[in-house]
């Protein structure tokens, strides 16, 4: 059983038939809907949220097919599966300890930009330290380039200090992580002076592991690093300066722009017009902001009694799909329901 089989089987076990395979696909591929985000949390599979972004539905179905043919999962109603006794046994037998460090739901909104910034920062620092200032950047992303430019030390003395600090921070993290192979693989993905980083396919060859495992070894380490520096930024000054800045760091760029305008006092209608957004996109932003920014006030959009009503319905209903809640509270808009849910969380 490869690591992807294990991950999806683990998810099926946790969901226990309460959601369709399609719903699971949305979770692991990181679909940004209220339903997927809430479900990931609800079924305790948040660590897998958005971890298989490179998957399309065919690839996902392929693995579901494998799990089914091994009798590890069984279809209970069309498109919905539960984990069989055999499946539970195999989950106990097999283990991929590094998966414990995955934390998709915690980091999904900035992990990619952090990674690109880190890759470019390390490449730049390593080359400049070796007096090689005309190198070919392995990251073409303009936002990452701007982020690196903003924090890059200006003179050689401070560059030397920065790289020594970064060295210490990595060293500390890798020692705590206690998996020398994963540490080496992570560094091999990065580009330094005189060595361009490796693709996942190349990493798989170098470390004699299947490609899915190479990807997950990398991803787990990345999430581990993010968890550590988020928890204690003061201990990792070099790494944490590469995190996106601003109060609403965990928002996507577009939602952040909306948030900024809201904070400046623009109305929803004005933002819709000025940013040329579709109404549905703007509503997605609102929900995202409600979920990620603790002190964001949703009272302009929903009254206290409406919130209480939704909360009552949620605690009563076993089926927590939006549709089911809407059926119970037909007078409330989907937006109101989504906002209330995002604010409360399911936990």
């Amino acid at each position: 059983m490869n690591v992807y089989d294990y991950m999806l089987l683990d998810c099926f076990q946790n969901m226990n038939g309460a959601r369709s395979a399609q719903g699971l696909f949305h979770i692991v591929s990181g679909k940004r809907t209220a339903q997927s985000l809430a479900d990931a949390q609800l079924f305790n599979i948040g660590k897998y949220y958005g971890v298989l972004t490179n998957f399309n539905k065919e690839r996902f179905d392929e693995i579901t097919g494998v799990l089914e043919s091994e009798n590890w999962i069984e279809e209970q109603s069309p498109g919905t599966y539960y984990c069989t006794a055999d499946g539970k046994d195999i989950l106990k037998e097999v283990s991929f300890p590094f998966l414990d460090h995955l934390a998709g739901l915690a980091h999904w909104s900035y992990e990619k930009s952090f990674w690109l910034t880190l890759a470019l920062y390390v490449q730049s620092l390593s080359n400049v330290l070796n007096n090689h200032s005309r190198f070919l950047p392995v990251v073409s992303d303009a936002r990452a380039a701007a982020a690196v430019k903003a924090v890059f030390p200006r003179d050689s003395a401070s560059r030397k200090m920065a790289s020594e600090r970064l060295h210490k921070e990595f060293e500390h993290l890798f020692e705590m992580y206690r998996d020398d192979r994963a540490a080496s693989l992570f560094l091999q993905r990065l580009t330094r002076h005189e060595r361009i980083g490796s693709t996942f396919e190349q990493l798989a060859g170098l470390y004699s592991v299947p490609e899915p495992e190479a990807r997950m070894l990398f991803r787990s380490m990345l999430h581990y690093i993010l968890s550590c520096i988020k928890e204690n930024p003061a201990a990792y000054p070099e790494l944490s300066k590469l995190l996106p800045t601003g109060e609403a760091v965990s928002l996507t760029i577009s939602a952040r722009a909306t948030y900024k305008l809201l904070a400046e006092g623009q109305t929803l209608e004005e933002i819709e017009r000025n940013r040329r957004l579709k109404k549905s996109t703007l509503e997605d932003h609102l929900v995202e902001i409600a979920r990620s920014v603790p002190d964001f006030d949703i009272s302009p959009y929903i009254t206290e009694s409406e919130r209480q009503l939704i909360s009552r319905i949620c605690s009563k209903l076993k089926d927590k799909r939006l549709k089911a809640i809407k059926d119970e509270a037909s007078s409330l808009s989907y937006l109101k329901i989504r906002l209330a849910i995002a604010k409360e969380g399911w936990g």
Binding site: S163, A183, Y207
Partner: peptide
């Protein structure tokens, strides 16, 4: 030589 470096050595080459 394509043999892989221990992470400590790799990290040293990268940043020191």
């Amino acid at each position: 030589d394509a043999s892989l470096l221990d992470w400590r050595e790799e990290l040293r080459l990268m940043l020191l």
